[in-house]
């Protein structure tokens, strides 16, 4: 089963993501968002970043976590090709980002994601203990 599917939204684009653990869910969500934004050929990361994100609950934390990764891309031209959540609670997470620098000659941009929205945001754990989330981006 795939880690994510696309939600059809008239104006924008949403994702349904799953993960065996909460850490995996957040890592998958970040990976999916980056895959929607930019096509990256296999290349070695050149930099590692430590990030710490706080939120008021899991939903808020997910929006802020994705917002953090989006900012690094949009504001600093740093693409998080791989992320690893090292610790997570409903109010806080620590993570390591593997970064490559955006290079217009190598990396094809696919969609301009303006922001990660709170619209219909959901994070939940199902009976089978799998974590699921939905999130809508503004394009």
């Amino acid at each position: 089963m795939s880690d994510f599917s696309i939600i059809d939204h008239t104006a924008d684009l949403g994702l349904k993501v799953r993960g065996e653990t909460l850490e995996k869910l957040f890592e998958n969500a970040a990976g999916c968002m980056i895959r929607l934004a930019v096509k990256i050929p296999n290349s070695r990361p050149t930099e590692t970043l430590e990030v710490h994100v706080s939120g008021s609950d899991l939903e808020d934390l997910l929006v802020r976590w994705l917002g953090e990764i989006l900012y690094y891309f949009e504001g600093e031209k740093k693409i998080a090709t791989k992320t690893r959540i090292t610790s997570i609670s409903p109010q806080h997470l620590d993570a390591t980002l593997q970064i490559i620098r955006y290079d217009p000659a190598l990396h094809e941009l696919l969609s301009e994601i303006k922001a990660v929205t709170y619209h219909q945001i959901r994070v939940s754990q199902k009976e089978d203990r799998v974590w699921k989330a939905r999130v809508i981006f503004d394009l």
Partner: peptide
Amino acid sequence: RGFGHQICDDFLKKMATRNLNGPYRVPDRQ
């Protein structure tokens, strides 16, 4: 452009946190 997107995003997060602890319960966090 990105200038406006980030300004909206910054304040939406601030207000979303405040709403959670404040007097307003909105039907959609956005």
